[in-house]
Design a protein around this nucleic acid. Structure first.
Length: 584
RNA sequence: CGGCGCGUGGCUCAGCUUGGUAGGGCACUUGCUUGGGGUGCAAGAGGUCGCUGGUUCAAAUCCAGUCGCGCCGACCA
C-alpha cells in the first residue's frame, strides 16, 4: 500500500475524550474514528491489524477442526424468550421492532442462535463432537463505553460453541480450546495470564479468562509468586498471610455497651478505641433478593460481618447466597428499619436476620461491633456466645500479600488485566432450555453438553497497543502489525531513486512481506514522526544521500537501532532473518 | 439511575466573570522558502458559538428549559 493512494490521516492532537495511551494512539494514527459513544469506524490500517489477528485465530481454531460459520446479527425475540434471556439480559440487549412491529434484538452473544442452528442438524451421537465459531460484530448496549475499543458498544468478537455428547467430552473440548487460545496469545508475543474467574450470568461452572496485563485494565488480578496460580480478584480465595489461631489463654470477657459519640467509620472507631482495624468487626447489610426471581419481591435482608480491615467481595457473597446477580446493599433507611440504628452503629448482636460471617472473624475474641443503637458500640463480643451466625464463609476480597492457595509459602501479587479471551464450560444450560437433543448409541434422547469460548478481537488489538507503545507512538507486535515494513522514501521526486524504491516495494510485496510506502511529498521529519506513530516493526529509509552512497537504512521500531544495507542485494537481506541484522 | 463538568470551523482550545455581533494553534488551499526528526513567510477558504425560549436597543456571553457528550459513583458501618 502506498500512502498517496491510501486513506490515512494522522494527527498531532488526541481527542479530548481519549484518556489512555492506546486510545489516543489509535485515533492519532488514524486507525479508527468515533461515530458515536462506543462505536467506531476502523480505518484502512486499523482494519488490517484486525484482519491479521482474525486470521491468527482462524488458523489456530481450524487446526483443531473448529468450523467457521456466520450467524445473523439481528435475532427474533422468540429465540431469546426460550432461554428467558430476553428479560435477563436487561438493557444490555438492544431491542427494536421492525415494520410489522415484531421485536428483534442485536446479537450480544450467540448461544441461542447457535443452539437453534444445531438442534436442526445434529441428530446423532455420530455427529459429535462439533465446535462452531464465527468472527462477527457484536452489539452490547453498555451503560458507559470507555477507552475506545476497550469497552465499546459495537465490537468484533470471535465466539465459538462446542457440542459434546457428555461432560467428559465437553471438558475435553474445553481443554482443546484452552490450548488453542494459548497458541493464539503466544503468537501475539504479549504479556498475558490465564486466570480462574466467575462464571457470571452466562452460566456454567468452569471458566478461565485470558488477561493481557496493563495498568489501564478493568480487572484486578492476583498472581502467585511461586506457582502458576492466577485468579480474577472476584473469585480469588482469601487466605491470611499470617494465620490467626485461637488463643485459648484469652478468656471471654462480659459483653459491655459503651458510648461512641460521632464514631461512624472503622477508621473513627480504630482511633477512638486504639484498636487495630483488623480487630474491629464491621457489619454490612444486603438484600438477598437479586431481582432474578419475579415472585420474590419481599425484602429479604441479611447481614454480613467482616474484620474492619477487610473488604467484602460481592461476587463471593452472591455465590454463597446462590444468587444470579450480586446482592444489593440496603439503603440507610432500610438498615435503620432492620436494626434500629443508622449505619455506623449496627452490629450482629440481637439481629433477627441471618448473619453471614467472613472466616476472618471466626477466631477473633472480645471484639467490638455496633450496638444497633445510635452512638453506641458493644465490646468484648464473642461469636457463638453473643450471636449465632449462619456459618463462616470466605467472603472477603483477597489482596496483595495474601497466601497463594496452591502453596503455603507463596504470596499473591496484584496486577491489572484486560480480559481479551474467556473459555466457559456451559453444561446443558442452553440445550435443556432450548430442547436441543441428539440420539445416543442406545437410541436414547440426550441434551448436548456445551461450552462457549470468546475472544474480543478489537479489544485485543487495542490492548496490544496499551501494552506495547512508547512516547512516539505504537510498537506493533509483528504478528498483527498492519504492515511489516514502513518504507520512507524521502525524495520521491527523484526518478532514479523512486525507480529503485518501486522495484523493492514490488519484490517485497510479491513475497508477502507487507510494505507501507510513504511516497508523499513531505519533509523527512514529518515522515519519521508518522512512521513512529504508526508503529510498523521495521522502517526502511531511502533518501538521496544514502541512495547515492548505495545504501538503505533499516530501523527497528522498538529499539530504534538502525543498520545500513547495501542497495544491491537489499531484497534478499530484507526477505531473510531481520533479527540477525540487529545482533551486536 | 445519582453527583460533577463540558458543548465555540475537521481536531485542540481561548473569549463568557464585567453583553456591543467571534479568535489562536493544528489540519486544509495558493505562492515563495526549506529539504534526514512535525521548516519559515505571506495570502486564503471554512463557524447563524448544541437546540428552544426569555431578558435586552443589542446575547457565544445573563436566565430558564431541553438535547448531546465526558468523568466519577453502589465499601459507610
Amino acid at each position: 500500500m502506498k500512502w498517496s493512494k491510501s486513506y490515512l490521516y494522522t494527527s498531532k492532537d488526541a481527542p479530548n475524550d481519549a484518556e489512555i495511551p492506546s486510545h489516543k494512539l489509535l485515533i492519532r494514527a488514524g486507525f479508527m474514528k468515533k461515530l458515536a459513544p462506543g462505536i467506531y469506524t476502523y480505518g484502512a490500517l486499523g482494519l488490517r491489524a484486525i484482519r491479521k489477528f482474525e486470521n491468527i485465530i482462524r488458523e489456530e481454531l481450524n487446526k483443531i477442526s473448529c468450523v467457521e460459520i456466520l450467524m445473523p446479527m439481528v435475532q427474533p425475540r422468540e429465540l431469546w424468550e426460550e432461554t428467558h434471556r430476553w428479560k435477563e439480559m436487561g438493557a444490555g440487549l438492544l431491542k427494536f421492532q421492525n415494520r410489522n412491529e415484531n421485536w428483534f434484538c442485536l446479537g450480544a452473544t450467540h448461544e441461542e442462535a447457535v443452539t437453534d442452528y444445531v438442534r436442526n442438524d445434529l441428530k446423532s451421537y455420530k455427529d459429535l463432537p462439533r465446535t462452531l465459531y464465527q468472527i462477527q460484530t457484536k452489539y452490547r448496549d453498555e451503560i458507559r463505553p470507555r477507552f475506545g475499543l476497550m469497552r465499546g458498544r459495537e465490537f468484533i468478537m470471535k465466539d465459538a460453541y462446542s457440542f459434546d455428547l457428555d461432560q467428559a467430552g465437553a471438558l475435553k473440548s474445553y481443554d482443546e480450546l484452552y490450548n488453542a487460545y494459548k497458541s493464539i496469545f503466544e503468537r501475539l508475543n504479549l504479556n498475558y495470564r490465564i486466570v480462574v474467574a466467575d462464571a457470571g450470568n452466562i452460566g456454567g461452572s468452569q471458566t478461565h479468562e485470558f488477561q493481557l496485563l496493563a495498568d489501564a485494565g478493568e480487572d484486578a488480578l492476583l498472581v502467585s509468586d511461586t506457582t502458576s496460580f492466577a485468579a480474577n480478584v472476584e473469585v480469588c480465595p482469601a487466605i491470611d498471610a499470617e494465620e490467626i489461631t485461637i488463643d485459648s489463654s484469652v478468656v471471654q470477657l462480659p459483653m459491655e455497651k459503651f458510648s461512641t459519640p460521632g464514631q461512624k467509620t472503622i477508621a473513627d472507631l480504630s482511633r477512638f478505641t486504639g484498636m487495630a482495624e483488623k480487630e474491629l468487626v464491621k457489619t454490612l447489610f444486603f438484600s438477598a433478593n437479586d431481582g432474578s426471581n419475579e415472585k420474590d419481591k419481599n425484602l429479604k435482608p441479611i447481614a454480613v460481618i467482616l474484620r474492619g480491615s477487610d473488604e467484602l467481595n460481592p461476587i463471593k457473597l452472591k455465590n454463597v447466597l446462590k444468587l444470579t446477580n450480586p446482592p444489593q446493599m440496603l439503603t440507610d433507611d432500610e438498615v435503620k428499619n432492620v436494626t434500629g440504628a443508622w449505619p455506623g452503629s449496627c452490629g450482629p448482636v440481637g439481629l433477627k436476620i441471618p448473619v453471614y460471617m467472613d472466616q476472618g472473624v471466626q477466631n477473633l475474641k472480645n471484639y467490638i461491633v455496633g450496638a444497633n443503637e445510635d452512638q453506641f458500640h458493644l465490646k468484648n463480643v464473642n461469636t457463638g456466645r453473643d450471636f449465632n451466625p449462619v456459618g463462616a464463609f470466605d467472603l472477603r476480597m483477597a489482596k496483595e500479600g495474601d497466601r497463594c492457595p496452591e502453596n503455603p509459602k507463596g504470596r499473591l501479587k496484584s496486577y491489572r488485566g484486560i480480559e481479551v479471551g474467556h473459555v466457559f464450560y456451559l453444561g446443558k444450560k442452553y440445550s435443556e432450555k432450548m430442547g436441543a437433543t441428539f440420539l445416543d448409541a442406545q437410541g436414547k434422547s440426550q441434551f448436548f453438553e456445551m461450552g462457549c469460548y470468546g475472544i474480543g478481537v478489537t479489544r485485543t488489538v487495542q490492548a496490544a497497543i496499551e501494552q506495547s507503545h512508547d512516547a512516539d507512538g505504537i510498537i506493533w507486535p509483528e504478528s498483527i502489525a498492519p504492515f511489516k515494513f514502513h518504507f520512507c522514501v524521502l525524495d520521491p521526486k527523484d526518478e532514479k531513486l523512486m525507480g529503485f524504491a518501486e522495484d523493492l516495494y514490488k519484490q517485497l510485496n510479491a513475497r508477502h512481506l507487507d510494505v507501507f510506502m510513504d511516497d508523499r511529498d513531505e519533509r523527512p521529519g514529518v515522515k519519521f514522526k508518522d512512521a513512529d506513530l504508526l508503529g510498523m516493526p521495521y522502517r526502511l529509509v531511502l533518501g538521496k544521500k544514502s541512495f547515492d552512497a548505495g545504501e538503505l537504512e533499516l530501523v527497528d521500531r522498538k529499539t530504534k537501532k538502525q543498520v545500513k544495507i547495501k542497495l544491491t542485494g537489499a531484497f534478499e537481506l530484507l526477505a531473510g532473518d531481520l533479527k540477525g541484522l540487529f545482533k551486536d
